[in-house]
Design a protein around this nucleic acid. Sequence first.
RNA 1: GGCCCCGUCGCCAAGUGGUAAGGCAGAGGUCUGCAAAACCUCCAUCACCCGUUCAAAUCGGGUCGGGGCCUCCA
Length: 492
Amino acid sequence: MTLRIFNTQSGAKEEFQPIEPGKVRLYVCGITAYDYCHIGHARANVVFDVLFRYLKALGYEVTYVRNYTDIDDKIINRANELKVGSRELAERFMAAFAEDMARLGCETPSVEPKATENISHIIAIIRTLIGKGMAYEAGGDVYFSIRDFPGYLKLSKRNLDEMLSGARIAPGEQKRDPMDFALWKAAKPGEPSWESPWGPGRPGWHIECSAMSMRYLGPSIDIHGGGKDLVFPHHENEIAQSEGATGQPFARYWVHNGFVNINQEKMSKSLGNFFTVREVLEKYDPEVLRFFILSAHYRSPIDFSDKNLEDARHGLSRIYEALLGLGEVLDSGAAKPAPEAGFSAEDEEIWQPAERLRENFAAAMDDDFNTAQALGQIFEAVRAVNRVLAERRFEANGAWLRRLAAVRDRFRGCGEVLGLFQAEPASWLERIKDAGLGESGLSKEAIEALIVERQEARKAKNFARADAIRDELAAKGVILLDSPQGTTWKTK
RNA sequence: GGCCCCGUCGCCAAGUGGUAAGGCAGAGGUCUGCAAAACCUCCAUCACCCGUUCAAAUCGGGUCGGGGCCUCCA
């Protein structure tokens, strides 16, 4: 089995071959720290977090670099609006981002460099480009001359002449060609700036990623990732700058995730359908959001809606319920010791999805990180487990207990790659239950009291009253579950 | 206008040459005082048309519909 990755550059899935055997150099474009991150950021970072985790699970030693853009026009503008320093503003939103990502279960990348801490590396690349005649200084700005880089537009596969018809030179810019882009921007009075051979200024947006990628990963890396929207111009320009400077291929595989839509519409600030991660997490469990993101292939668009998130919550709960059931049998000692026996043909058939979970999961992930299919495999194993538990097969054949224990390990292993269902099932389900209660206006105590009352009514065979209580709670979204051990409840 | 993507069951979503995974919802059954959960069973021929092929949701052409990028954007 080999990992295949869809490469934007070739437009096809390719077998993954790292530059250096056993090691992977991964660079993902991070955020510009001028606002709270939104669910589009959540998706991108969850997707690459899973890519990172899966590569590690395959045994690669992965160096994952994700940058922070902490100096940029948007930061300066926002800082001016809020009357705070641009550095202070960037610090605030970088911290918020780290917090949001942690809540979403994303691992911390190996290195998280900041643009402002790499100014000297940025300047060095610009000097090299000027020396090679691929960049020029004009009035304190430095521009990259795209006409002098033959491979320009090879990633986005656009036509230069057609793009030129729409390109304009903004007032104040002194570009030779409208498609040229800034490597260095001269500082206007009052703007944050760094000294450079071209006078005080700040780096252009694209150059920092080239600089940080090269600094931490070398001139050529294995995987460069980001959102689809970065293909042009950002990644195109990174290629031009980097390969222009080093003469070596910049990145081997270009990986881009699809967008998040809101109720079928493109998410955008102008439409007002913009959700920050923190807003969403007020309403939904972070793991539910993560599960939702991973329920689609990373290159497909996903549609964020209440209905879809609720479906995701139900689906994830199903997995946790199965893990809970597994724990009850395996951990509580409730299972009576039963003599071990062989497995029948029917047993084998039922159990196959659970037995082969690891292979099936790996096959899905190997196919361009197909997490949707991987989750499908997990659900099939869940059904197998539930069946064995429901039919109490382990009570007739003690050998089932070993199988159940083994599959629990497999669930954990797959879950680790996805960053899902690592929580203790009972407490996770409890948390979801409590959160669901928020909307009903009921307290746990009130529910418990009604359960007691209903229990008494049932004992007295007053089923009319018992059912009335259940219906009353059901109307508020609370479902009662009777079992030999007593009555529990959950939210719809 | 240029480039690119998509259209699979009520909803979400895999599958990209060999006769359609999975989740949610729904129907019937087992269980239950009744329910719920769980389990069992059932529930699509893949927008449309024309081709290629022994064989297509899967390839080619066309039609219709939706979306993205081309300016900052995950």
